[in-house]
Amino acid sequence: MTKSICVTINGSSYANEVEPRLLLIHYLRDVLGLTGSHIGCETTLCGACTVEVDGKAVKSCTMFAVQADGKHVLTIEGLANHGTLHPVQEAFWNEHGLQCGFCTPGMILASKQLLERNPNPSEGEIRHGIEGNLCRCTGYQHIVNAVKSAAAKMGV
C-alpha cells in the first residue's frame, strides 16, 4: 500500500513512493536525508520539527507525507540564500538565541512566520507566537531578543 508523491522541497522537486502512514518529518529525514528538522517530542508539542508547507509553519511530526503531495516545503536547509543567512537566522546567531541548538530550526521557522504576519510584535506577541516551540535549555530570553532583533532588522 504505497502512494506516489511529488513534493517541492527548498526549490527542488522530489518524487517518491511512500506508505500513507509515513510522517512528513520521517520523509524529510529518513527518505531524503534532510536532517535539519528535528524530532523532539513527536507529539505536536515541542515544535522542533516545524517546517513550512505552502508558506504555513506546521509541525511535520503531525502531518503525513502524502498530505504534502504537490506542495512546497521549506526546511531550515532552504532558508539561507546562497550562503547569506536569513535575517532571523542571523539574529539568532547575533543574540545567542540558542544553547544546545536542538530547538533552533523549529524556533527560526516559527519566528519567521510570526514576523511575516506581525512585522513589529510586542514581547507578549512574540511569546504567544512561539508558544508551540519548546527550548529545554530554557533559553527563552535570548530567543525573544533574537526575534526582536530580527524584527528591527527586517523592518529597516
Binding site: 515544535g47 504555513k56 509553519a57 506546521v58 508558544e131 508551540g132
Partner: peptide, 9 residues
C-alpha cells in the same frame, strides 16, 4: 487554540 502551528493546520 493550541499554538500557531496547530492553528495553521
Amino acid at each position: 487554540i493550541g499554538d500557531m502551528q496547530v492553528r495553521n493546520m
